[in-house]
Computed example of a mutant assay.
Amino acid sequence: MFAHKDFIHFIQQAKSERKDIVCINVLDTEGSVYRKSGATMLVNSDGKFIGVVSGGCFEEDIVHCAKDILSKHEGKYVVHDLRMKDDTLDSWGKGVGCNGLIKLWMEPFYYQDNYGAIGIALDFALSGIKKTLIRSTEIHGFYGFSSEEKQEDIVFDEESNPQLIYQKIHSPYRLLILGAGPGSEPLLSIANTLGWQTAICDTRASNLAHVHSADETHLLDNCEDVAEVLERHFDAAVVMSHNFSSDAVYLSALLDSEVSYIGMMGPQKRTKSIISSFSQFSETVFMDPRLHNPIGLDLGGESPESIALSICAEIEANRNRATPMSLREKKKVAIHAN
Rank of each mutant, 00 (worst) to 15 (best):
P289C: 15
R270N: 13
F278E: 13
I307C: 00
S282M: 02
T284I: 09
S245A: 15
M287V: 03
P289F: 08
S273E: 15
P304C: 14
Y261R: 12
A253H: 15
L251E: 09
S303C: 15
Q280L: 06
I311K: 08
L251C: 09
K269P: 00
Q268E: 15
L251S: 04
P294L: 06
I262M: 03
V285K: 12
S257F: 04
I262Y: 13
F281I: 05
V259T: 15
H242I: 14
I274S: 02
I262S: 11
F281E: 15
R290S: 06
G263M: 06
G300R: 02
I275T: 09
H292N: 13
E258R: 14
E302Q: 03
E305R: 09
P267W: 13
P294N: 11
Q280I: 01
S306A: 15
G263Y: 02
E302M: 07
R270F: 10
S245R: 15
D288A: 11
H292Y: 04
N293D: 06
N243A: 13
N293R: 08
H292M: 08
D256R: 14
S279Y: 08
D288Q: 11
Q280V: 07
G263E: 14
G263A: 05
G266S: 01
Y250F: 15
S310M: 06
L291W: 03
F244D: 09
L299K: 12
L297P: 06
A308D: 10
M287N: 13
F244K: 10
L297H: 09
V285W: 04
I275L: 02
S252P: 01
T271V: 13
D256F: 00
G266V: 07
L297A: 04
S282W: 01
S246L: 14
H292L: 02
D247Q: 09
N293I: 01
V249S: 00
D256T: 10
G296C: 04
F278W: 10
K272W: 04
G300K: 10
I275P: 00
I262A: 06
E305S: 13
R290F: 10
D288V: 04
T271S: 11
H292A: 03
P304V: 10
D256N: 15
G263K: 12
I275E: 06
Q280A: 11
L251V: 03
R290N: 11
N293Y: 03
M264Y: 02
P289H: 11
I274V: 12
G266H: 06
S257C: 04
A253I: 07
I307D: 01
F244G: 05
P304R: 05
T284L: 04
Y250T: 06
M265R: 07
L297V: 00
L255I: 08
A253P: 05
